[in-house]
Write a protein that binds this DNA or RNA. Structure first.
Length: 726
DNA sequence: AATGGGACGCTAGG
DNA sequence: CCTAGCGTCCC
């Protein structure tokens, strides 16, 4: 390390200033306003005014923190002391961390607004592991350091020194990637913030190796059903800690420090439970490695064609007005088209359409057992009246506009890029989920809009609207998608060892669902219609998902009797699949939980419920979990493997954009495309065997790769086989 | 007289 | 089966 790199006098001074309670006066006139009166902010975060209002509070907490005798302010140390501090950090046995936000809260506080501006990081360094000291006080050899962590405004960044502070950066790296035990509640948020603040001077690859223990993750692994909300809840559940009340100033600081001590104890408690439940490997080898992967994903900016989105929004708005008018005409009255209640009144009380189709069973709403107006219901009614078709089209357009056009626009605010938030612990099955926007739910198929034109010459114009096409790679880069083909079905074959199902996947060429349809309908493969194939696909997944006949008939558009026949004949053809389902249910009854292929666990407290429907639901959850959870395991392992390969290579640069459960989307430099595609494909397919986790699938995995200059126009990529020639 | 939270309905994805 | 998200409706 070079000393001169760190000796930045002017940066020191600015940091000194912001550390105290001054900075808002000049820039922000409304400093005295009570921040509490200014209601909750939307997730899109800070308009300038909201930052101004919280500023005063922040300065005070920072001041209280750094004036607390036990806390050393890293920014205030001279270069010599900083070097010593780096050494102390290296020597420490345990580091316990929390971010401190500008509004005076920390990661240990209950409510967390999204994209909260961060101001620093408090580190508790423990030099011995003894728990002999009282639970919430420091040991004799423990010390506390405060690290400033703030976005430098763009205007200040351009002048003279581009970096916030390189010494602090290196201290952070020491803290985050050290070999000792590091504990942080919501570690992903910390990593993302660090990557954002040091966007220019810290490559995302640097956080790849870091292994930060996170009680939110461990608690979730122990019981994914528990809505593992905040730190306090976890303490109440796993430790016995007196309830704390919100405090201010010096008292608040003591509370934070004691919070860190408790965080350490909580972590130890959860770790020992993970070990005794056989979840340690999964935690350490998979879930902890996911944290830097997700942090890097969140810190990446995905470029979006904002202008095109705005145009589309207007277009869809016009289309909706047209359809609304048509709906009113067809109904013979004005009503709120978006309201299912009002639509129900029109369809079933005014028009009495249900009386004209007594041969078909119209679906009911789940909770109140009323006539449903869902897609399945409207499809059954569409030949009786023009209204259902109009509503169906209206709903399609409305969904696209509200969620995927306006919704994404509102995630962009003043920017022309987005970054989703990825959640590791919000799905019981072990899958990850995305928010703001939900990248995993963007429509796969484009929507055709016929635009009425009142221009002489042409009558109609057809426009296609495709939200995925709005996502554009950076200049000189390309999107690459890698899709695990039929993972869940392959896993079903593996889990059941059904010989017929296995055979389908061992013969490499053919289309799986075509083969399936031919096997099950008893016709030659070239006689399988596309309808048969589609049916086969839906039956398979309804079996996996445990859907009943009712649901299947709705999806398939056939009678429940027909759906039952389809399902039965499938289970007759693949006897061992049925055996697997029964085995799984039996096992869940016996032990009260089920396990995925990598040992992920789901407790099923209702599995022995006296209530039939509740018990049945738990049984479906059991079967579904084993398949869906195992697929999640594989996909997450793929993300980790590829992430580690890229970050330990000096030549690779591809970045993960999104995970769509069985598909990974990357942004790759144009010139690296083919090489990276081959690497991704072979890495993913190699997951058939994961020795250290005891995974050895009886079926091969197949990965399809495609690429494109927008997410809406991806085309299949042919990768030469990567077998080394003998 | 608003208004914000919760229940419900629907639908995009897997 | 399990997500997120948008929309009513009612208290």
């Amino acid at each position: 390390m070079k000393a001169e790199e760190h000796c930045n006098e002017s940066a020191e001074k600015t940091s000194k200033q912001t550390a105290f309670c001054k900075p808002c006066k000049r820039q922000w006139a409304k400093c005295g306003t009570d921040p509490a009166k200014n209601g909750p902010k939307s997730f899109h975060g800070g308009a300038n005014t909201s930052e101004a209002l919280t500023q005063s509070q922040d300065g005070c907490l920072t001041a209280s923190l750094t004036s607390e005798p036990r806390v050393k302010d890293f920014g205030q140390l001279n270069p010599d002391e900083k070097m010593k501090m780096l050494e102390t950090t290296r020597q420490a046995k345990v580091l316990v961390l929390t971010m401190v936000y500008r509004d005076g809260t920390t990661q240990l506080d209950p409510e967390q607004k999204l994209t909260l501006p961060v101001c620093g990081l408090l580190v508790l360094m423990k030099s011995d592991l003894s728990c002999g000291t009282p639970e919430d006080s420091l040991g004799p050899n423990d010390s506390l350091v405060y690290l400033k962590l703030e976005h430098t405004p763009a205007w200040a960044q351009q002048q003279t020194h581009p970096s916030p502070e390189l010494f602090t950066r290196d201290m952070l790296l020491q803290v985050l990637t050290g070999s000792q035990l590091v504990v942080c509640y919501k570690a992903k948020d910390l990593l993302r913030s660090v990557l954002q603040v040091y966007r220019r001077e810290l490559n995302w690859k640097r956080v790849a190796g870091c292994h930060i223990q996170d009680p939110q993750v461990s608690a979730w692994l122990l019981d994914p059903t528990d809505p593992s909300s905040c730190f306090q809840d976890l303490l109440n559940k796993h430790c016995r800690r007196p309830h704390t009340t919100p405090a201010l100033g010096a008292q608040k600081v003591s509370q934070i420090i004691s919070g860190l001590c408790w965080l350490y104890r909580l972590n130890m408690k959860l770790c020992s439970q993970l070990q005794s439940q056989g979840l340690w490997k999964l935690y350490s080898d998979m879930e902890l490695n996911m944290i830097p992967v997700l942090a890097a994903m969140e810190s990446h900016r995905i470029h979006v064609d904002k202008e095109a989105l705005k145009k589309t929004s207007d277009l869809l708005g016009t289309k909706m007005k047209q359809l609304e008018k048509e709906a009113h005409q067809a109904a013979g009255q004005i009503f709120l088209v978006t309201s299912s209640t009002q639509l129900r009144t029109v369809l079933f009380e005014k028009l009495r359409l249900h009386e004209r189709c007594e041969n078909k069973k119209l679906p009911k709403t789940i909770n109140k057992q009323q006539q449903s107006t869902s897609e399945a219901a409207l499809l059954l009614l569409q030949d009786l009246h023009p209204l259902p078709k109009i509503i169906l089209e209206y709903r399609q357009v409305h969904k696209i506009k509200s969620t995927f056009v306006d919704g994404i626009l509102s995630c962009m605010m003043c920017k022309n890029y987005i970054s989703s938030t990825w959640h590791q612990t919000s799905a019981v099955t072990g899958r990850i989920s995305a928010k703001h926007p939900n990248f995993q739910a963007l429509p796969r198929q484009p929507l055709q809009i016929t635009k009425k034109q009142y221009v002489q010459g042409k009558e109609e114009e057809v426009v296609t609207v495709h939200p995925r096409a709005m996502f554009i790679p950076h200049e000189g880069w390309t999107f690459l998608a890698a899709d695990f083909c039929q993972v869940e079905l392959r896993l079903l074959a593996h889990l059941s060892s059904d010989p017929e199902l296995l055979r389908i996947f061992t013969s490499p060429q053919a289309d799986v669902f075509t083969m399936l349809a031919s096997q099950w309908k008893g016709v030659r493969e070239d006689e399988v219609t596309s309808e048969d194939r589609e049916h086969a696909k839906r039956i398979v997944y309804s079996v996996v998902y445990g859907a009943g006949r009712e649901r299947l008939s709705g999806i398939l558009g056939v009678s429940t009797e027909q759906a039952r026949l389809f399902q039965d004949s499938f289970l007759q053809t693949y006897r061992d699949v049925q055996a697997f389902i029964q085995r799984t249910i039996q096992q869940s009854h016996k032990q009260g939980y089920v396990l995925s292929i990598m040992g992920r666990r789901r407790n099923l407290p209702n599995i022995n419920s006296p209530d039939w429907s509740i018990r049945m639901q738990a049984e479906r959850q059991a079967v579904n979990f084993v398949v869906q959870g195992s697929a999640a395991d594989l996909c997450k392992m793929a993300m980790i493997r590829i992430f580690n390969l890229v970050s330990s290579s000096s030549s690779l640069s591809a970045r993960l954009i999104a995970q769509l459960h069985d598909e990974l989307l990357y942004e790759v430099e144009d010139s690296h495309l083919e090489q990276f595609a081959a690497l991704v494909k072979s890495t993913m397919e190699s997951l058939q065997r994961i020795d250290h986790l005891g995974v050895h699938l009886k079926v091969p995995l197949k990965v399809a790769v495609s690429s494109g200059k927008s997410w809406g126009s991806m085309s299949e990529l042919n990768i030469p086989l990567t077998f080394p020639s003998p």
